[in-house]
Write a protein that binds this DNA or RNA. Structure first.
Length: 346
DNA sequence: TCTGGGGTCCTACAGCCA
DNA sequence: TCTGTGGCTGTAGGACCC
């Protein structure tokens, strides 16, 4: 049976929440990221549409954004308030149908196959409800699967609605650049461009054998299906974490072992606090070190038993640290707990 | 000169064991 | 007893997502 999947994406979410908190920001370029200081290390989380006119976009270093638009307003990420607004927005979606997948703080999928109204009426209900509860706008994509619904929601922004049907694949999917396909990042884009594949349609012209040759079995098959708009993946309505981690980038690269050790101990403490808050123990601890030249190493240690003891996690992290030669300045350090088990509690 | 933080999934390889 | 094979687990790294 044909499914009806809806993807909802909040427009410039972090910036929109900030503008709602402080309407004086409306109409001015606003950039949210890091600690809100454009002279320090950090990247752009969200830029509002005014700031985007200057070429500022997500993941851009704050210092670069500052150069592009020195008079932009730079704000720190206020995760708590975005989370609050996110919960209001998700509650509206949940009232349409409980078959909902969270896809980050500012987006979600709904499976509305069993909802009797037309797609247009459902979309209108969502937009009106979200506007009422949060004061914000969202863009909506509707299609027969998650892959197409997500591409659709990106086609008209902000405050858009796009419905993609099976027979729109050739006209609307195939002319798009490959980068618009979920799962194609900068590396795969570069690889495909080298073999003169620039659009999703051109990607769809490659044989399965050809794609597997270039990208391996699993990813080759994925690209073959995705370029044809095929996606049978179900909505994930319940989710358990597979890892809990903390990492930090130093404001300036460090050589001093003591400050690296102090930071590692602090990160281990934070990871344990998060594990305990969420009721998990872990069996494997992995540390990550990134040097000033961006070389990144990981070292892992699996313990005999599951634990949420701060001492044991810290000891495992330090055992990993011992195995790395610190002969360059360190830019970033991180601690990750994996191999998780839910604690038995009543 | 610049490149965050918190995640997931995949691949390749090595060691162990039946 | 030796050799080969295949599954499983742990480790390391890479690509991608929001």
């Amino acid at each position: 049976m044909q499914r009806r999947i809806i993807h909802i994406d909040m427009d410039a979410f972090f910036a929109a929440v900030e503008e709602k908190k402080n309407p004086a920001l409306i109409g001015k370029p606003v950039v949210i990221g890091g600690g809100g200081n454009p002279n320090k290390r950090g990247v752009v989380s969200t830029a509002n549409y005014e700031a985007r006119k200057y070429g500022i976009h997500s993941a851009m270093p704050l210092r670069t954004a500052h150069k592009l638009c020195p008079h932009a307003i730079f704000l720190p990420v206020d995760y708590e308030s975005y989370l609050q607004t996110s919960q209001q927005f998700k509650a509206v979606l949940f009232s349409i149908t409980p078959v909902m997948e969270n896809a980050g703080i500012d987006e979600a999928f709904l499976d509305a196959s069993a909802v009797p109204e037309t797609p247009e009426i459902i979309a209108d209900k969502i937009k009106t409800g979200v506007k009422e509860k949060t004061g914000l706008t969202c863009s909506i994509g509707i299609a027969s699967n998650k892959l197409l619904a997500k591409i659709a929601s990106d086609m008209r922004k902000p405050d858009g609605l796009t419905i993609l049907n099976e027979n729109d694949i050739e006209d609307k999917l195939w002319p798009l650049p490959i980068r618009k396909l979920y799962g194609i990042g900068p590396k795969t884009e570069a690889h495909l461009k080298k073999i003169e594949i620039e659009t999703i349609g051109q990607l769809a012209s490659l044989t399965l054998e050809n794609l597997i040759e270039h990208f391996g079995n699993s990813y080759g098959q994925y690209l073959y299906d995705a370029s044809r708009g095929i996606d049978d993946s179900p909505l994930i309505t319940h989710w358990e974490p597979k890892s809990i981690s903390r990492e930090t980038t130093f404001q300036e690269d460090v050589k001093n072992w003591q400050s690296i050790a102090r930071t590692l101990a602090e990160l281990a403490r934070e990871v344990v606090a998060d594990m305990r808050d969420d009721g998990y123990s872990a069996k494997t601890v992995t540390i990550k070190i990134r040097f000033s030249d961006f070389q990144t190493l990981t070292r892992a240690k699996t313990m005999a038993d599951y634990t949420n003891s701060e001492e044991e996690i810290r000891k495992a992290a330090f055992a990993c640290l011992k195995r790395i030669e610190l002969n360059k300045r360190v830019r970033l350090i991180g601690v990750r707990a994996t191999n998780l088990a839910k604690d038995q509690r009543q």
